[in-house]
Amino acid sequence: MSYNILIIEDEENIARVLQLELEFEGYQVDIAYTGTSGLIKYREGSFDLILLDLMLPEMHGLDVLKRIRATEQATPVILLTAKSEVEDKVKGLDLGANDYVTKPFEIDELLARIRNFIRFAKSQSAVLPLADNDTHLLSYGQLSIHEQTREVLYFEESIDLTPREYDLLLYLLKHPKQVLTREQILEAVWGFDYFGDTNVVDVYIRYLRQKLGSVNSTAIIKTVRGVGYALKESTHET
């Protein structure tokens, strides 16, 4: 099966190199050189992954990302960034980007990330049940997630999560009371080919705790020292 990738990149040399490499790997590739044309191509086409530059003419990459995520959360988006764009990287991840690579990047690393995100996205869509919507509802204690709508409720209050925070919480919820190592979480949520540090798990656990804690101060995500994390109802643990 051939997968479709949209490249939104204003530097024609970079876009062309990416196109050649991706087509050599068997992907179908479309290119847009401005933010506006990229958004139009996204809306008119069907893509399995998007490579999105941040510094684009006509419309900034973050604005393109906002509009994509206002439509849907499923299509993986990898940001192409410059080393100096640290603040934009953070904003991009908060807005729902799945990952970023910094220019100049190693093409083999980028290809590995692309394979990983497409594989993960397809595996997620493949396991969705076809029965009544109630089969999508997962609950533990006062926490519930509806997989089809991606709605998260904690003590009956809606929690607004980024896509990565949602995936992390969903994974914890699917394994209640089970102690999960950082390596297990990385492989399940970020993917087997993730190249970053395991500290990213700690960062996103902190994000989740802050958002859940704004509704109820009871800590439902427990730290198991020296091992990892577990989703457990309130006990005397810390």
Rank of each mutant, 00 (worst) to 15 (best):
V29E: 09
V64D: 00
I31L: 11
K41L: 15
L168A: 09
M55G: 12
I50V: 15
D108T: 11
L170K: 12
E157H: 15
D202F: 08
E87P: 03
E165F: 03
K89M: 14
H175S: 01
S144Y: 01
S214G: 05
V179K: 05
K232D: 01
K83T: 01
R150L: 12
D53K: 06
P104N: 05
K232P: 00
K83N: 01
Y33R: 13
G228V: 07
F105H: 04
D10Q: 08
V17C: 08
Y33P: 03
G92I: 09
R164H: 01
D53R: 07
K122M: 13
L56Y: 02
E72M: 03
N4Q: 10
F47V: 08
T235S: 10
L49M: 14
N216A: 13
L212A: 00
A219K: 02
D63L: 08
D167S: 09
E157F: 06
R113K: 14
T135F: 12
L153C: 03
I107T: 10
R225P: 00
D202G: 04
L54A: 01
Q148H: 11
G228K: 06
K83L: 07
D30M: 08
Q19A: 06
I14R: 07
A97S: 10
F47T: 05
A15S: 14
D160R: 13
E87M: 11
E9T: 09
P163K: 01
P176R: 05
L18V: 10
Q178N: 10
I118W: 10
L39Q: 13
K66D: 10
G196T: 11
N199T: 10
L130A: 11
G213Y: 02
K232L: 01
T102E: 14
S234A: 13
I8D: 00
I5T: 05
Y194D: 07
Y229F: 15
T102K: 11
E151I: 11
N98S: 12
A188T: 13
P163S: 01
K91T: 11
L143I: 10
A112C: 04
A131E: 09
S2A: 10
L130H: 10
V203E: 11
F117H: 08
E85P: 01
I185V: 15
Q142A: 13
M59C: 02
L137M: 12
D99Q: 09
H60V: 00
S123N: 12
S144E: 15
I50E: 02
L54F: 03
V179N: 04
I118H: 09
M55R: 15
R164L: 03
D99R: 07
A82F: 03
F24T: 14
L62I: 09
T149W: 00
T102G: 09
K83F: 00
F120H: 03
G226Y: 06
E147L: 15
E25I: 00
Q178T: 14
H136K: 02
L168N: 07
L208A: 05
I31A: 05
G226I: 06
P163R: 02
L111F: 01
E44N: 08
Y171R: 05
E44K: 09
Q184T: 15
L137W: 07
A230P: 03
G35A: 10
E233R: 02
